[in-house]
Amino acid sequence: MKVELQGQVALVTGAAQGIGKSIADRLAANGARVIYADVQYEVAAESAASQSLGVAMAMDVTRDDQVQEVMDRTVQEYGRLDILVNNAGVNTLEHRVTIDEFPREEWDRLLAVDLTGLYVASKAAAQIMRSQQSGKIINIASVVGIVPLRLQSPFVAAKAGVINLTRSMAIELGPYGILVNAIAPGSTLTDGTKELFYGEGGKFRDSVQELLNHIPLGRPATTDEIAHATLFLAAPESSYINGHVLTVDGGWSAGYMREF
């Protein structure tokens, strides 16, 4: 799918690798100037270098000052901000435990990035977009913000928060020409999920078939499949979609697979 993003300026948080990198690459390949913002600046710089329209900026979404600096630089250097993709997110690899054992520090760390970081970036971007009277904000939520999973309580709580925040931002910002939507990816093949599930030494490799049994398409998403959905929400073709959460989960959340 190819769309027209020529002349538009996009910023993707957490764009160094994984889903964020695929999204940034896809937007750039469709003509947008793309800022690869990431706390891992070196990796982001390497990723951005692969696209002629890519540029990397160092940004920790939990730091208001860094976020503001990146937004200011974006406007100074490229004149505007049309698309913000809130992709930066973390989940816990070590603490896969029930809530009665879940460490407070880990809860705080996840919420700070996954929910509060999204607020910080959206707030700064919305100020620019409001003065332009146009813009698109796309939040990368998760299917676990819709259906609960065990053993990752802060992540499911943060993603559910992102989903309803998406809706409230949509009604707040719609009148200023700013559309706000979310994507809820299902299980996606990334370095993180390889470490947990899909890789040879994956910590939960044994239970991976159990997970895939719940997915009608029988496989995890590729990062590029999430990127395509994001590209669609960034494109002119989706200009009447606002306040929506688009699941890209292979049918995971559509119901139960059963043999009777």
Partner: peptide, 28 residues
């Protein structure tokens, strides 16, 4: 246009989804 997106190859992992196209009416 969104129907074309769902028909396109890029949407191949979108399955069982409900794509609301309402300008934000429902949430409002």
């Amino acid at each position: 246009d969104p129907i074309v997106f769902l028909a396109s190859d890029g949407a191949r992992y979108v399955n069982g989804a409900f794509l609301l196209i309402d300008g934000g009416m429902f949430v409002n």
